[in-house]
C-alpha cells in the first residue's frame, strides 16, 4: 500500500502540537522562576543592591573559571515550610551544577534566618563534613549574622576558592587538625611553664628534709582515745542555682544523600 505522506505529516504535526505544551509545562515545573541559565547570584530576598550583585557575580564567575567548579548564592524571602536541605540540594542539581570538578550552593531563607550550604559528591570530597564544612561556615557566619551580606557571600566564595586550591595543591581535603594552631601552641607553652615550675619545685624540695614539726601524733597513745557521742545539729540550708552550659550548635557538616554533603543552621 502506498504511503500516505500527507496523513503521516498531519499525524506528526498533531503529535508535535500535543507534546510541545507538555514539554513546556514540564520545564516550567522543574525550573525556578526568575533564574537565568548560568546565573550564579539569585537575590530574591533583595539583600544586595544591583552593583553588589554584579560584583559578587563577577567574582564567583572568575573562581568558577579558575577551578572548573560551580558556585552559587541564592537568597529567598521564604521557603514556605519546605525542607531547606532538600530544597537546596534539588536547586543545585537542577540549576547550579555547571562545574566539572564540583558544585556548591549557599541558600539563605531570610524569614527564618536559615542558611544552608550543599555540595555535590565531588565538592563533598573537597569540603568534608568535619574539616572544610565547619571552616567554610565559620568564615562567613559572623558577617551574615551582622547583616553584612555582600561581605558574607564574598567570604563564602573566597573560602570555597581557598579550600579547592588547598585540595588542588595538597591532593587531600582541608583538615583543621593538620593546620598550625596558635591557640594550641599558647596552651602548650603555658602548660610547659607549669611543668617547668613543678619539676623545679620538686627538685628543690628534694634538697632539704628540714621542716617544722606539726602535731604530736607520734606520741599519742592510740588505745587511749575515748570519743563522746557526736552531736550534729542542722542549722540551715542554702540553695544556689547555676545556668546549664549550652551545647554549641556549631557542630560539623553532614551527609545529605547521594554522596552530597552540606552544613546549615541559623544566623
Amino acid at each position: 500500500m502506498p504511503l500516505d505522506y500527507k496523513r503521516i505529516l498531519s499525524a506528526l504535526a498533531v503529535l508535535l502540537c500535543l507534546l510541545l505544551p507538555a514539554a513546556a509545562l514540564a520545564a516550567k515545573v522543574n525550573a525556578e522562576p526568575g533564574i537565568e541559565p548560568g546565573q550564579v547570584v539569585v537575590d530574591e530576598a533583595g539583600l544586595l543592591d544591583r552593583s553588589e550583585r554584579a560584583e559578587l557575580a563577577r567574582h564567583i564567575e572568575g573562581l568558577q573559571e579558575k577551578h572548573g567548579i560551580g558556585i552559587a548564592v541564592v537568597t529567598k524571602k521564604s521557603l514556605h515550610g519546605k525542607d531547606i536541605v532538600k530544597y537546596t540540594d534539588n536547586l543545585m542539581n537542577q540549576r547550579f551544577s555547571p562545574g566539572q570538578n564540583g558544585n556548591t550552593v549557599l541558600l539563605i531563607a531570610i524569614d527564618q534566618r536559615d542558611f544552608q550550604i550543599v555540595t555535590d559528591a565531588k565538592m563533598h570530597a573537597i569540603i568534608t563534613n568535619d574539616g572544610g564544612a565547619p571552616y567554610l561556615r565559620d568564615a562567613f557566619l559572623d558577617d551574615l549574622s551582622d547583616g553584612r551580606y555582600q561581605a558574607a557571600f564574598l567570604a563564602y566564595a573566597d573560602t570555597v576558592d581557598e579550600l579547592v586550591s588547598y585540595y588542588e595543591k595538597e591532593g587531600k581535603p582541608f583538615d583543621p587538625a593538620d593546620q598550625f594552631s596558635w591557640i594550641a601552641l599558647g596552651i602548650a607553652v603555658i602548660l610547659a611553664l607549669v611543668v617547668m615550675y613543678g619539676v623545679q619545685s620538686y627538685l628543690v624540695s628534694m634538697m632539704s628534709n628540714v621542716q617544722p614539726g606539726y602535731g604530736a601524733g607520734a606520741y599519742l597513745l592510740d588505745d587511749s582515745i575515748r570519743l563522746e557521742a557526736p552531736t550534729d545539729t542542722f542549722l540551715y540550708m542554702t540553695v544556689t542555682r547555676a545556668p546549664k552550659p549550652k551545647e554549641s550548635d556549631r557542630d560539623g557538616g553532614s551527609d545529605i544523600g547521594g554522596g552530597h554533603g552540606g552544613i546549615g543552621g541559623k544566623f
Binding site: L220, L221, S224, I225, R226, L227, E228, P230, T231, D232, T233, F234, L235, Y236, M237, T238, V239, T240, R241, A242, P243, K244
Partner: peptide, 16 residues
Amino acid sequence: IITETNVYECLRSGTM
C-alpha cells in the same frame, strides 16, 4: 544546676 547545701554544727569531744 541546683545545689542545695545543708549546713550542720558538729560538736566532738573526747579524751586521749
